[in-house]
Simulated assay, not measured.
Amino acid sequence: MTEIRTPRLILRRWQDDDLVPMAEINADAEVMRWIDDGSVRDLEQTAEDIERWEEEWDDEGFGLFAVELLASGELAGLAGLSVPEYLPEVLPAVEIVWRLGRPFWGQGYASEAAHAALEFALQDRGLDRVVSINRLGNEASENVARKLGMSLERETEHPEYGVPLHVHTIDLSEFQG
């Protein structure tokens, strides 16, 4: 079982008890406004998401971690790695992803989780390059990408939803573990 501990977080594989709290995060319109077309996701959709994330672990050897607060055991959201098949122009690539519930915003958890996931990608999984894809205007995620040492590679558009995207990148030679 793959698990990463940071000073305040545990990044781990998904468990049955994670479904309801993740569905609550996905049902928050403010959380989801920057993801895909901005639609919220219900319990059934979240269950399908978690199943797909776990399949990616099996297929790729990496995936999205459940992010748990070390102190309380609360599920704060997700962070990890995924193949961004929705944006063929950046392939082959691995994307670093993070999504936290609103109660966990503004406390550095996203940066902490994303840094751990990036370190996992570059040092544990041997990837030589990772991208971050953010909707234009999502300043919080842009800030996390910058804190990771990523630089803007290109501006593009989501092929399905038509929203403008920023693609940031970092490679192993630039990473400051």
Rank of each mutant, 00 (worst) to 15 (best):
I96A: 06
A76I: 10
H115M: 09
D49I: 06
E112M: 05
P92I: 06
G108Q: 14
W57V: 01
G108F: 12
R33S: 09
E44C: 10
Q45P: 01
A71H: 07
V67A: 03
F65V: 04
I96H: 05
V83N: 07
G80R: 02
L91K: 10
L118F: 10
Q107G: 15
G108N: 12
E56Y: 02
R52K: 08
F65Q: 00
F62D: 03
D42I: 09
E95W: 05
A93E: 11
W98L: 03
P103M: 12
H115K: 15
W57S: 00
L81Y: 05
L70V: 08
A93I: 06
W105Y: 06
A110R: 01
A79D: 13
E30P: 09
A113P: 02
E54P: 03
V40G: 02
S72N: 10
R52A: 14
N26E: 14
G77K: 08
A93F: 00
V90N: 02
H115N: 10
L81C: 07
D37K: 13
D28C: 12
A116D: 07
A76F: 02
G38N: 12
L78N: 04
G61R: 03
E89N: 07
P88I: 08
A71L: 08
L64C: 08
A110G: 01
Q45K: 07
A23C: 03
R102S: 15
L43W: 12
R102L: 14
Y109G: 04
I25S: 11
A29M: 14
A117G: 04
E85I: 13
A29Q: 13
A23P: 04
G80H: 09
V90G: 05
V94L: 14
R52I: 12
R41A: 03
F62W: 02
V97R: 15
D49W: 05
Q107D: 15
V31G: 11
E56G: 09
Q45L: 11
E95L: 00
V83E: 14
V67H: 01
A110E: 00
D58S: 11
E54A: 04
W57C: 01
A27P: 03
E68T: 00
V20K: 14
A47Q: 06
R52C: 10
I96S: 05
I50F: 08
V20R: 13
E44H: 10
L64M: 13
D36N: 14
G106H: 09
D36K: 10
D59A: 11
V83P: 09
L64A: 09
F62A: 02
L91F: 03
A93N: 08
L118E: 04
M22L: 15
I96W: 01
E44P: 00
L43V: 13
L100V: 07
Y86S: 02
V31S: 09
I96Y: 06
Q45Y: 01
A66V: 02
L19D: 03
L69W: 03
E60D: 10
A23N: 03
S39R: 13
E85H: 15
W53P: 02
D58H: 05
Y86W: 09
D28S: 13
L100R: 07
E60K: 15
G38K: 06
L87F: 13
A71Y: 11
P88Q: 09
E56M: 06
G63Y: 07
W105A: 14
D49V: 10
